[in-house]
Every structure is written in C-alpha cells, then in structure tokens.
C-alpha cells in the first residue's frame, strides 16, 4: 500500500495532538498555510477511506488493517475543530464556507459525529462482520456529509 504524503502528515498530526504537542492554533500562523494544512488532513481522511475501499473490493488482502485505518480517521476527525480557526476563511483557495464560523456549534458537533462514527467503524472492523462493516462505512459517509452538506462549496462529485 502506498503511504501518501497526506497520510503521513495526517498521522503525524494525530500523534502530536494525542501527545499534547499541538494545543491550539497559533494566531501567528499564515492563513494560507492553515488552509493547506487542513486540506492535507482532509486528504488524509480520504486516503484512509481509499485504503479501506481497496481492501473491501478485494484488490489487496490487508483486511487486518481496516480497524487501524478507522482509528486513524477518528484521530484526524478529532483535529477538525482546531484546523478551522477563526481567520482562516480566506488566504488560499478553499471550499470552506463562511457559515462554519457563524454556526460553529453545529460544525463542531458534526466533526465529533465523524470522530464517533469512525471509532465505531474501528470497533466493527475488529469484530469482523463484513456486512456490518459495509453498513458502518455508509454511516461514516453520512457523517462526512454532516459538514460537507452545509459547510462546503458544492462541486461535481
């Protein structure tokens, strides 16, 4: 399996958050860099899904990795509120809508839902029930929509 740069960044970020190295966003960070960083984290989430999908489709036989990918997703999801600091609305091309900062509680709650659903995917994956894993992946996708529907500029999918 290819370990992409975004996955590596995401994994490092998750470790740093877990160990307390990252304790909030510095106001000094360049908003363009914050946007680039959060896009790397989002790409990390997508790459974990791609990896799970490759297992699910039978393209690779790393079935034992699914729970780990899901745990990594939960760790990345935990970072979401921090990587959308006030003041990062503009500075680089971004699909984040200003509504994020107007309706912050809803945004943060939706991010928490992704964390919870990803953690549940990890549990389900460890249980090995293939049908349940597929269904839980659907729930994770719905959780993505908790933010993407109201808070992301629509694009052709």
């Amino acid at each position: 399996m290819k370990l992409t740069r975004a996955m590596a960044i995401g994994a490092m970020a998750a470790v740093m958050a877990a160990t307390g190295v990252v304790s909030g966003v510095s106001a000094a960070d360049d908003p363009a860099k914050v946007i680039g960083y959060r896009q790397a984290v989002m790409k990390g989430l997508a790459d974990h899904i791609t990896a799970i999908a490759m297992v699910a489709k039978g393209e690779v036989s790393y079935a034992g990795h699914v729970a780990g990918h899901a745990q990594s997703m939960a760790s990345l999801a935990k970072l979401i509120p921090e990587i959308f600091p006030a003041g990062s609305e503009a500075g680089a091309p971004s699909e984040a809508k200003p509504e994020i900062w107007k309706d912050w509680d809803k945004f943060a709650a939706a991010a928490k839902t992704l964390e919870d659903q990803s953690a549940k995917l990890a549990e389900v994956a460890a249980g090995g029930d293939v049908g349940a894993i597929g269904a839980q992946l659907g729930e994770v996708g719905k959780a993505c929509g908790g933010c993407h529907e109201p808070f992301r500029v629509k694009k052709a999918q």
Binding site: A46, I49, A53, K57, L137, G138, V140, G141, C144, Q157
Partner: peptide, 29 residues
C-alpha cells in the same frame, strides 16, 4: 472498475475516498 462503482453504491464513497453528498447520497441511502 465495476467494483469501484458497486462500492460507491454501497457506501457513498468514490475510489479516491471522497464522499458523495446531496442527491446521490439520498439515492444511495
């Protein structure tokens, strides 16, 4: 691949890991 398309119908995820939302998410769910 056929598997990519079927995976999307089952989960709402594209092969690149991006999630579908909007009308297609409803069509799937």
């Amino acid at each position: 691949s056929v598997k990519d398309i079927v995976f999307l119908f089952r989960t709402g995820f594209r092969p690149d890991g991006n999630d579908l939302q909007g009308g297609m998410r409803e069509a799937i769910d």
